[in-house]
Amino acid sequence: MALATRAGSRSIPALIWRSTIGKKTVMAVSGLIMLLYLITHMLGNLKVFFGPDEMNAYAQWLRTIGEPFLKHEWFIWIARVGLLAAVVAHGVAAYQLSRLDLAARPVKYAHTRRRTSYATRTMRWGGVILGLFIVWHILDLTTGTVNPHGVHGEAYENVVATFSTWYGNVIYIVALVALGLHIRHGLWSAVQTLGLGSRTRDRALRATATTVALVLTAGFVSVPVAVMTGIVS
């Protein structure tokens, strides 16, 4: 007779979604998907330095990826659905895990002291800021709803219009600094969750996370800085 183990009766989805380690794996994988997207997004944004024609042509090309196998704009919609799933999975898992974490320490210490790094302590609220930023960012530069220019097909002009307003610059730069901090801890943490870290690799992994965070933030922030300084207009 087989010995009955507690885990013996649980299915793989239950072992993933109902355990803290499994749910963190969902966060790690969805986070890495979003990070890969952000790297290509940042590199694509740098097209703004080559003028409106090249930038707008690039924005149009994104809609033609996969043709003729895929129909026009199919690729971009598949990517959007995938990214939305990643954002929702990441957010729901983070919310549920945070609820558990807060419930596990019901009485706080009277003697408080500064714990962990700034990047680590700001993961939760930084994540909320990023979620709100994504909503504004889509309304601004995807749908054009809140964009001062807001013309479809004129990506370059829309970007310049946003970063010609003080609030556009403030929202964007604050969110991108939050993104850098989030990735600084999140990338290293995701690697640990997936069990890929080790003592010999740790320094390299921390350095990689810091580098990716800095390069990504600098690449994104270079666009509003270029508009503010008149390099891009």
């Binding site: 507690r6 649980r10 803290t20 419930a103 320490r105 943490s189």
Partner: peptide, 17 residues
């Protein structure tokens, strides 16, 4: 699997590294 299952069931929080 069993030890992590018990750990979660006992009301400990998750790891945020």
């Amino acid at each position: 699997l069993d030890m992590v299952g018990t750990m979660d069931a006992e009301g400990f929080g998750g790891c945020t590294n």
